[in-house]
Nucleic acid binder design. Sequence first.
DNA 1: ATGTAAACCTGTGCGC
DNA 2: TGCGCACAGGTTTACA
Length: 270
Amino acid sequence: MPELPEVEVTRRGFAQAIAGAQVLSMRMGKPLRWPLGCELHAVVGRYVVQVRRRGKYLLLDLDRGMLLVHLGMSGSLRFASHLPEAGKHDHWDLVTSCGTLRLHDPRRFGAVVYAAGEGDPVAVKLLGGLGMEPLGGAFAVDTFVQGVRSSRLPIKQLLLAGRVVVGVGNIYASEALFLAGIRPTTRSSALTIVRVKRLHQSICEVLERAVQMGGSSLKDFSSADGSSGHFQTAVQVYGRAQAPCYVCTTPIKMLRQGQRSSFYCPVCQR
DNA sequence: ATGTAAACCTGTGCGC
DNA sequence: TGCGCACAGGTTTACA
């Protein structure tokens, strides 16, 4: 479910409210993607300093150590002063003096991992190989152009890999490629500099717009305050196989790339 | 080194 | 109504 926009919308939904709070207790449900990696007493009693985001990870900085939270495919976070009793898919509660942060994740591809700091081996393993942040001014065009043109992967799969730029998942990869007029199957190294620059711009536009609209709520995404996003109403190609292209009315095509579905317009994208 | 496929787990929707 | 299958927003791991 969650790509960068959904994670960022989630972060904004509780970052201010939880900053400065003291952790009163923590509850773990069924196992997630990775083990927590610490005892409860390493977290209980600590203070939440701030909440950052790196790619699709949320980083909860504590006054000692940090928690890395990933929403996987089906995860969502809620933060409220009073939450109902934990349901069967609620697998993590962080009870603080300002409210409870709860991870709801039916498929359990998500994770909550403790790291002593940025240099902790587990943090390096999870965050170390990540590419540039597409939002916030750190997304260098020249670095992007070089990264794209040095790979022989199909451009769609390169975007998903997160080595050059992070946060672009299956929905927004298809959307950005449509905006840029590039077929998902195009070999990255075959793209001209001009076309890669256009893709850079498209990625920025799609992600910024999605954040503004509160993310996509295709299945069950909701932000930390429980509200849902609206970007799905602005989707141009994702999930629209055989439906007419909004630009040229040609039926949208779907194909499989690396076990993932890609959507594109055979006329608008070359 | 790179690229491809399977794996993790649960729910939902569809054809029969 | 039930059963089996395909598919779902992500990422790591093993293997060609």
